[in-house]
């Protein structure tokens, strides 16, 4: 973690709104994008990223400045996104008729970017999360295993399967 980020966290802990805003602006795009790619629903992604930042604000006083902020935030974002995706697909507890809510389409502008969002949406949430952590947020498989509390072999197999499916879809 660079010195600038450490300083921003310290200043935010001391009450600087400006420092908090810089931290927010620094991390929002990736947090939002990560959530969007996992849940494939723009409104839900906004909620998830926002809730994750709120959790960060609530825990700010106790945050250890020696630890990097990004992985901590990403863990919250990705786990919440996985939870949301699972909840959307398994709601029969309340009766099938009440729950058929199609996901809102992701707001995309690029062509290939749109394709990859569509291709990702074909995968399960766990697979999407692993792909997003590896290729958007640049974590190693070992770090992903730790972040998601998964065996490393599971991470590797999900990465492999996820990439195979993406390649197939984008051909």
């Amino acid at each position: 973690m660079d010195r600038r980020e450490i300083a921003l966290i310290r200043d935010a802990q001391r009450g600087s709104v400006r420092a908090l805003e810089q931290l927010f602006r620094l991390h929002w795009p990736r947090a939002y994008r990560a959530a969007l790619l996992v849940v494939d629903d723009a409104a839900a992604a906004e909620d998830i990223a926002q809730e994750s930042f709120l959790a960060a604000v609530r825990a700010l006083d106790r945050f250890d400045r020696r630890r990097p902020f990004g992985p901590w935030l990403h863990r919250i974002v990705v786990n919440r996104a996985i939870d949301w995706s699972r909840a959307r697909t398994l709601r029969r507890e309340i009766g099938d008729a009440a729950v058929s809510e199609p996901a809102a389409p992701a707001r995309e502008s690029g062509d290939r970017a749109e394709d990859i969002v569509a291709a990702l949406s074909e995968l399960g949430a766990e697979h999407r999360a692993v792909i997003v952590l590896r290729y958007l947020l640049d974590y190693t498989p070992g770090e992903i295993a730790e972040l998601l509390d998964l065996p490393r072999g599971t991470v590797n197999s999900r990465l492999r399967r996820g990439l195979d499916r993406l390649e197939e879809a984008l051909r």
Binding site: P29, E46, E108, S109, R112, V132, Y135
Partner: peptide, 18 residues
């Protein structure tokens, strides 16, 4: 994959609301 994922646009309005 990385380049494609990074091209997925963030939502500026969502950012301001959040």
């Amino acid at each position: 994959v990385k380049r494609l994922l990074e091209r997925v646009p963030s939502d500026r309005e969502a950012e301001e609301r959040a």
